[in-house]
Each structure stands twice: as structure tokens, then as C-alpha cells.
Amino acid sequence: EVPFKVVAQFPYKSDYEDDLNFEKDQEIIVTSVEDAEWYFGEYQDSNGDVIEGIFPKSFVAVQG
């Protein structure tokens, strides 16, 4: 069931425009499960802007 919160276990950096880049310990709200390997989610950056994109499930852990 979406949405749910995950926390980055590792930093994720990608050159693909659709990917969500983040640092370790970033909290991310997952709004869609793309497939067995990928989530789609969002978070607010330090400027208060909402950043969204896809990212690999293996880089995050589900909270709770």
C-alpha cells in the first residue's frame, strides 16, 4: 500500500533525468511501486522543493 516511508541506506547518484538522487539517511515517501526492483518517490530538499523520481529498492529500507 502506498504511500509509505523509506530511509536511504546508501547514497544514490544517477545521470538519468527520471531517477531520484539522494544521500544516505534521506527519508523518502514512496508514492508508487514501479516493479520488483524500483520505487517511485519524493522528498523535500533543503530549499523546500519537492524532488521526485525512480530509485532502486535495494538502496533503501522501509520504515516501521
Rank of each mutant, 00 (worst) to 15 (best):
Q9F: 07
F40S: 04
E17A: 13
V50M: 12
I54S: 14
G64I: 12
N47Q: 08
A8Q: 03
S32F: 10
K57V: 11
V62G: 07
Y39W: 15
D15E: 13
F55L: 00
A36Y: 09
D25Y: 11
A8L: 04
G53K: 00
D18M: 14
Y12E: 00
F55Y: 00
V30L: 04
E42Q: 14
N21C: 12
G64H: 12
E27D: 06
V50E: 02
G53Q: 01
E42P: 01
V50R: 13
F22T: 01
I28M: 03
D35M: 08
F10N: 06
D15Y: 10
D25Q: 05
I29P: 03
E42H: 15
V62R: 12
E23H: 05
I28T: 02
Q44C: 13
G41R: 02
Q9M: 15
G64F: 09
V60R: 00
D15K: 10
K5L: 11
V7L: 06
S14M: 02
A8S: 09
E37G: 09
Y16V: 12
D18L: 15
F4T: 01
D45N: 12
S14H: 01
F55S: 02
E17F: 10
A61I: 13
P11K: 08
F4I: 04
G48H: 04
I51Y: 13
F55W: 03
K24T: 07
V30R: 01
I29D: 04
Y16E: 12
P3I: 04
F10W: 11
W38E: 01
P56W: 06
E1S: 12
S32P: 01
G48C: 07
S58K: 14
E37C: 14
K57I: 12
E17V: 11
A8M: 02
S58L: 08
K24S: 06
F59S: 06
D49V: 14
A8V: 02
V50I: 14
K5V: 13
P11L: 05
F59K: 07
V6R: 00
V33H: 06
Y43R: 01
V50H: 10
N47L: 07
F59E: 05
V30K: 00
E34R: 15
D15C: 14
G48K: 04
I51G: 01
F10Q: 10
Y16H: 15
Y16T: 11
F10D: 04
Q26C: 04
Y43L: 05
P56N: 05
N21H: 11
I29L: 14
A61T: 13
E37N: 12
Q63R: 09
E23D: 11
D15S: 11
P11G: 09
E42F: 15
I29Q: 05
F55D: 02
E17Q: 12
Q63H: 11
T31C: 08
Q26L: 02
E1K: 12
G48T: 02
I28Q: 00
F4L: 04
A61H: 12
S14G: 08
I51H: 15
E52M: 14
E37R: 07
E42A: 09
V6N: 01
W38P: 01
S58D: 11
G48R: 03
Q26G: 02
A61R: 10
V62K: 11
D49F: 12
G64T: 13
P3T: 04
P3D: 02
K13G: 04
Y12A: 03
S14L: 02
N47K: 08
F4M: 03
Y39K: 00
T31D: 02
Q9T: 12
E52I: 10
F22G: 01
Y43I: 06
S14T: 10
I29N: 07
D25R: 04
P56V: 04
V33D: 08
Q26M: 05
E1G: 13
S58P: 05
N47H: 10
D15W: 08
A8P: 01
V62Y: 12
F10K: 14
T31Y: 06
V50S: 06
V30D: 01
V2F: 08
V50W: 13
F22I: 01
